[in-house]
Nucleic acid binder design. Structure first.
Length: 293
DNA sequence: CGGCTTTGACCGGCGC
DNA sequence: GCGCCGGTCAAAGCCG
């Protein structure tokens, strides 16, 4: 069970705390510029971990046996569209072949791009963001990622990259961007839950180890801050006295926090509490889909 | 040749 | 309704 002694302060105060922590000005009146809080979507999600954090009661911390609260459906991020059954029927035989093909393509394109329901907001997987200090944007966390997009971020000179887990049927995504305020800080946002063990040694990925602390903290599932790369330094500002995590996984956190357990510990030598403590954002962010439906 | 990245286009959500 | 912006797609190119 997760024990979070934590902030009993108001959210704003929490934000200010982070602002101080990262030396980023933040105040109610200064919301014009994009700050770390913005980057971390602090204001986008009401029922975030902040809330969860502030009410660490049993209602938010189900019994340890309830493994995964945010378990995505068996097929997370169902493949947008690619069903061959949507091949348009040949209901217009009079068309010339070229036209036909063209239209078919267009229709295909449309269907590909419009699979979403109209009346329901897009489903979002639970997300978790953290920051690491690293020179490399894409941190090797043991999973294999495929980059599928890159966008310029408004108010930031640094682009945001979009990655997807290459494992079939695993729809985990992550966004990687550099902090506008400190270019040496990489903000990584994970979305979704890995449905497979971590392919640790693939692509010569260096040994990754997850400490129980890391697993409990949640950054483990996909994090890179436990990776011992020479040029990479992860930050976990020594948590304030009122924030601590137990050494067991928290079922209320996204399951990818816990997936790290899939990964064997390559070497006890890599265990590094120091790195963990150096991680920049002690606050994992979690979004839970409101139980609408 | 297969896997990955780059890049421009497109769509939906959201605010005005 | 319109425009902006974030997120996604897939063709093209690159690389080992």
């Amino acid at each position: 069970m997760l024990v979070i002694h934590l902030w009993t302060r108001e959210k704003l105060e929490l934000k200010n705390e982070f602002s101080d922590m990262f030396d980023v000005p933040y105040s109610e009146g200064e919301r014009g510029s994009l700050g770390l809080m913005d980057m971390l979507d602090f204001q986008d999600y009401g029922p975030s971990l902040l809330d969860l954090i502030q009410t660490p009661g049993p209602q938010t911390l189900p019994s340890p046996t309830s493994e995964v609260v945010n378990t995505p459906a068996t097929t997370p991020n169902s493949p947008s569209v690619s069903s061959s059954s949507t091949e348009p029927a040949n209901d217009c035989p009079s068309k010339r072949e070229g036209e036909e093909e063209e239209e078919r393509d267009q229709e295909k394109l449309k269907k590909r791009l419009k699979p979403k329901k109209k009346n329901s907001k897009r489903q979002r997987e639970p997300r978790f963001a953290f920051m690491t200090k690293s020179e490399v944007d894409h941190l090797d966390d043991g999973y294999r990622w495929r980059k599928y997009g890159q966008k310029a971020v408004k108010n930031s000179p640094f682009p945001r990259s979009y990655y997807r887990c290459t494992t079939a049927a695993c729809g985990v995504k992550k966004r990687v961007e550099r902090s506008f305020d400190d270019s040496s800080i990489v903000v990584t946002t994970y979305e979704g839950t890995h449905t497979h063990p971590c392919p640790v040694t693939s692509r010569g990925s260096i040994g990754i180890n997850i400490t129980p602390e890391a697993a409990a903290f949640g950054s483990g599932g996909t994090s890179s801050f436990v990776i011992s790369q020479p040029q990479q330094q992860s930050y976990f500002p020594n948590p304030t006295p009122n924030l601590s995590f137990s050494t067991t996984t928290n079922p209320s956190l996204p399951s990818f926090f816990q997936e790290r357990r899939f990964c064997p510990s390559p070497s006890p030598l890599l265990r590094d509490h120091g790195l963990l403590q150096d991680m920049i954002v002690p606050s994992s962010q979690e979004w839970k889909e409101p139980k609408e439906e």
